[in-house]
């Protein structure tokens, strides 16, 4: 045993170095979300808010925007994601003013402005729910790569279901699409990235 010690020591250090390297590579620059390299300007949209007035993405320049696509009759994906984001909002503390959650519909037929705005606010008073006409929304869906499909085959008590992709998009304070997260990402990860991003910004 004694003679082998230098080998054992070397082996351990090598193993740890490899593991560290692996973690490094799989997590560039320390962000946990999927990074857009290089960041692309986020599609600047104008959509309808709860009071019927226009809401412009550019209004939120200077803040981190968390953008999610869904609809009010969504049985599971949207409520769970928004619930997680509302818990995230509680944990932001002094960063709360620097983060804005936007919830854009994939079901403009049923999600009228007041309905989706109220729905979003139910999760957190600061959340903004947005809708618009199909013409207004289609380029938005396409730019963010959102898949959406109305499923009339198996109606529920709330009517038809809409299948949609479930990514959560993080837009940085400069208005660039910076990170995205898969469905089910724990809020700790998102919080981590927000903190990391905001610390990296020049004051």
């Amino acid at each position: 045993m004694e003679k082998k010690f230098p080998w054992v020591a070397g082996g351990i250090l090598l193993l740890l170095a490899l593991a560290a390297g692996f973690v490094l590579v799989s997590r560039r620059d320390g962000y946990l979300g999927l990074r857009y390299e290089p960041p692309v300007p986020a599609y600047d949209f104008f959509l309808t808010g709860g009071d019927g007035g226009q809401v412009h993405l550019g209004d939120f320049r200077g803040r981190v925007v968390l953008l999610f696509f869904g609809y009010t009759s969504c049985p599971d994906i949207c409520p769970t994601t928004l619930a997680e984001l509302s818990l995230l909002a509680d944990e932001l503390d002094r960063l709360a003013l620097s983060v804005q959650v936007l919830y854009v519909t994939v079901d403009p037929q049923r999600d009228l402005p007041d309905k989706i705005a109220t729905y979003a606010r139910a999760f957190d008073p600061s959340f903004i729910g947005l809708t618009g006409s199909e013409e207004m929304l289609t380029p938005v869906w396409q730019s963010y790569g959102v898949y959406r499909s109305i499923d009339t085959e198996s109606p529920t008590a709330l009517g038809y279901l809409v299948s949609h992709s479930t990514r959560l998009y993080l837009i940085d304070p400069q208005g660039n699409l910076f990170l995205s997260y898969t469905y089910g990402t724990p809020r700790e990860d998102i919080l981590h990235d927000i903190r990391l991003l905001l610390r990296e910004l020049p004051e």
């Binding site: 351990i12 740890l16 593991a19 973690v23 490094l24 997590r27 981590h192």
Partner: peptide, 13 residues
């Protein structure tokens, strides 16, 4: 790193 996996490996070593 903030990686629990790395910390676990180090502790096991």
């Amino acid at each position: 790193f903030g990686s629990w996996l790395l910390l676990l490996l180090a502790a096991l070593a």
